[in-house]
Design a protein around this nucleic acid. Structure first.
Lengths: 337, 337
DNA sequence: CTCTGGCACTCTGTGTTCCCGAGTGCCAAG
DNA sequence: CTTGGCACTCGGGAACACAGAGTGCCAGAG
């Protein structure tokens, strides 16, 4: 159905279109790539490719442009991920190594990805459900108010103000803190609900109402809510890509946390690349954009995902290479800190 | 020089231009506003206004458009801040009251401002230098590594990983934490450097090296660096304003923390509105944009600033009303939590 | 059966011209 | 000082022609 030459033609079309942003015609193809056949032959192949929906012509007498299906085939079978240059790898390494805390790692990762790919970068904070408790702190703020601070093994720090049903002395808080930490230390966040069930019985009866309040806030806010935190950057690159159509939709989608999270997609394997091309992605405002995403994590555990978003007409091999590389380095940095 | 009627003409020009986005001519002005004079008279006034640089014509035979100087006069002398409707006030109140921690307050404020003004909103976190210490926590992570967590009275939580020069037992850390908190509790962030000078002498000699490391990180990272944290949103509104010229520059500026911070400007009085119009603002990429900013704070102390950024052609009275109202409410919420 | 060159055809995009209308500036009269 | 009148300017849209790129198809050569 699609012999090798037709595939080569498709590849050439994608490559040319990506680099020139203009519909590519048979003549130009024959000139720029030495396919060893004449334009006429290429025309026949193009007709076949169009017949099967891999390419399309914007106007009757214009060149061809890849369809989403065409890009899909290109990504799956016709291209190889392009590794970064040594210089780029070193730059990533030193840039990320300079970060002092999780916020900064995430922020720098966003910048890095945006700069490397010249696209919009999206980075998710390490998922809470896949982290574990490193420390819980209870800080008295006022007589009947405390701040609850949760620190995870991935460096996330979540805080929450709690209004207590009654005043409570500092030493009782200290005890509560000790019990909480004893129970929860190292506990996976997803297992916290079961684990805290024991807490009240380890406490003197008079502290139990307060503990109950604190625990319910802990569960409700820190575990169930706030679940995913996500950050993006590099929107200036959108304006550069002559993206004017739908730019507004794209910006709107980016500001919708929910959409954004779904965009990064379900987790594949660690460092496994997910590519969503144009209409393949679940949000209608992003019909003209593709997403290249990967999971990152320390060791063999995926903590969260990151990726970039750009016009369907993007340089997939390079973008995929950058995303994969950054995901790996972030994983390493996270493991090291 | 500028009699009342000329000022009225200028006001009418600004209002019409803001609402129609088209250069406004003498005829249209005479029709839509009952100025009680003929188009010819208006033309004379317009000529005078142009002479003095308040308006300009894009092309020889087009209507007039206000210049930055014209907007300035309009804002200073020809317009009144327009208060929000009761419904809007209530909406703000309930929306902000639902926030559970500082991050959420800031996030919601950004959304609120963006939605209310249909512009890009910028909100600065409460400035660290103007906050004070509520609690310092030292959490052991590994034998020779701890996480330092600083909680301020404004609810900011800053963390930092510290590598120690030697291993240290948990009880010594507890002591260190106690001493630190005793010294710093309630201490203004800007006075921390002097205040911590006493810390080492209150510690047993063997703990001093570790304390020195921790203190230096505390000073360097938490006080000097990270100083200002700033967040923006509502960029989709940029695309809607037919802003196409320079959109890229605007997005770039927004991603530059430094520029953004300078944009919000030096602090005026609390809830005092600052308006920077077009070329008045310090960054060249934003020549076509105006900034309306205000300080917010709890009580009588300004903690930080917030504002919006939009095309010079914006509805200043409404925008100023919204910014002022939001600044006040945020101050209240912050005071209450 | 596949490739190739030739050819007629179809468009888009661009440049040209033309003209309408909005808007101006100026002037002379009220 | 205000007003109506008038000539002038210029931008932008419509109509038009045209060049160039690209196509599809066909018949002939391998």
């Amino acid at each position: 159905m699609l012999d090798d030459r037709k595939l080569a033609v498709l590849r050439a079309i994608v490559e040319d279109y990506v680099s020139t942003n203009e519909p590519v015609g048979s003549k130009a193809l024959a000139d720029r790539h030495n396919l060893g056949v004449s334009p006429a032959t290429i025309r026949n192949d193009m007709a076949a490719l169009e017949e099967q929906g891999y390419i399309t012509q914007p106007h009757t007498s214009a060149g061809r442009v890849p369809t989403d299906k065409g890009y899909r085939l290109f990504v799956d079978r016709l291209s190889q991920i392009k590794p970064l240059s040594g210089a780029e790898r070193r730059a990533i390494e030193t840039f990320l190594a300079g970060a002092v805390d999780l916020d900064e790692i995430v922020m720098r990762t966003v910048r890095l990805l945006a700069q490397l790919t010249r696209q919009v970068a999206v980075v998710q904070y390490p998922s809470l459900t896949r982290s574990s408790v490193r420390h819980v702190e209870i800080v008295p703020l006022a007589e009947r108010r405390v701040m609850l601070v949760l620190i995870t093994n991935t460096g996330r720090v979540e805080q929450r103000v709690v209004d207590l049903p009654e005043a409570i002395a500092d030493d009782r808080i200290a005890n509560l803190r000790a019990v909480l930490n004893a129970c929860l230390d190292g506990c996976g966040l997803s297992r916290v609900p079961e684990t805290v069930a024991d807490v009240p019985e380890r406490l003197p009866p008079e502290d139990r109402p307060v503990a109950a309040t604190i625990l319910s806030v802990l569960l409700e806010t820190l575990v169930e809510r706030h679940e995913e935190k996500i950050v993006f950057g590099g929107t200036a690159n959108l304006a550069a890509a002559d993206f004017s159509v739908g730019l507004r939709d794209v910006l709107e989608a980016l500001e919708e946390q929910v959409v954004l999270i779904r965009l990064l997609g379900e987790t594949g394997g660690l460092s496994e690349l997910t590519v969503r091309i144009g209409s393949e992605n679940p949000y209608s405002g992003l019909r003209g954009t593709s997403i290249v995403a990967a999971g990152y994590g320390s060791g063999d555990k995926e903590l969260a995902r990151l990726g970039v978003l750009g016009p369907t007409r993007m340089d997939y091999p390079v973008t995929m290479g950058a995303v994969r590389a950054v995901a790996r380095y972030v994983g390493q940095i996270l493991a090291g800190s």
